[in-house]
Amino acid sequence: MTEHNNNEVGRRQFLGRVTKAGVSIAAAGIIAAKLYDVQGPKPGVKAEDLVTLPDFSIPQENGRTISIVTGPDRTQTVGMAIELLGGIGRFVKEGQTVAIKPNVAFASPSKFGATANPDLVAELVRLCYGAGAKRVIVTDNPINDPASCFTLSGIGKAASQAGAKVILPRDHLFRHTTLTNGRLIRNWPIYFEPFEKVDRLIGVGPVKHHERSGASMTMKNWYGLLGGRRNVFHQDINTIIAELAMMVKPTLVILDGTEVMMTNGPTGGSLSDLKRKNTLIASTDMVAADSCGAGLLDLKVSDLAYLAKAAKAEAGTTDYESLKPKRAAVG
């Protein structure tokens, strides 16, 4: 090898190394510049990551806001109650997707009335499909273990058999929300994803005594949408129920007063806690439905502070008689 050749090889090797080093330095520089963060993250959830629950409500029709049907058989009473409001076709249109949110709070057999009635949920699913719904989902974020709640209450099986898809709450289905004009629901995780893309939302739950708030009915049912350490809200239960009524705008709510849990709510646990009242209410106004339901627990509207709060926030009216409820009896 001559010295010239040697130099030539060395020069090429040098250039090769310089190129490699240059490229890697440039890459390091670009990555560093891209990821450079002067301030560090601000605490809390970023405003752009907050979500808002869609509005599922439908236009009001005078005299077709609330219906009260008496009868022992829920599948009959619910059909009639919806019929009185204009039929299921008013609420669910061909090709729409529907979410049904029953109260599945506890891992308790349905006969104790701590959860929504499975037959009632199944009937609602069938009605929705009957109206041409493309897909019906049934979901809740229960207090007890979710899978056990859906199994033991019988709602899981009843809903699936009727053709609905039962969704259990998983961590990744929650998002943070802030309720406009809300005091408690600020930057709080809610059960969001299953509801994000559906067209209609129907809430269904039993009339129950509730130790802390007085009564658990359709408004309290939305507690199941709250995630996180939601039990802190028991420090101000009436406000949180009113805020839930502000946050959730359902298409329809079904309040089941066929068998009412009169004492030891919201879990009950004994058949002696229940009293047959054979009443079922369907309403597009939750406040009206719950005001009406209060009577089934032998309570006055003024006994339930959250009703007045919700009415003040214009979530509905407590004077349900002014809505001229449609009444009927079946069976």
Binding site: A21, S24, I25, A28, G29, A32, L35, Y36, D37, V38, Q39, G40, P41
Partner: peptide, 17 residues
Amino acid sequence: TLYRPLVWAVGVIVLTI
């Protein structure tokens, strides 16, 4: 993200290269 003062480490990386 690359928090502000840690940008010095990029200098070390470049010199190592």
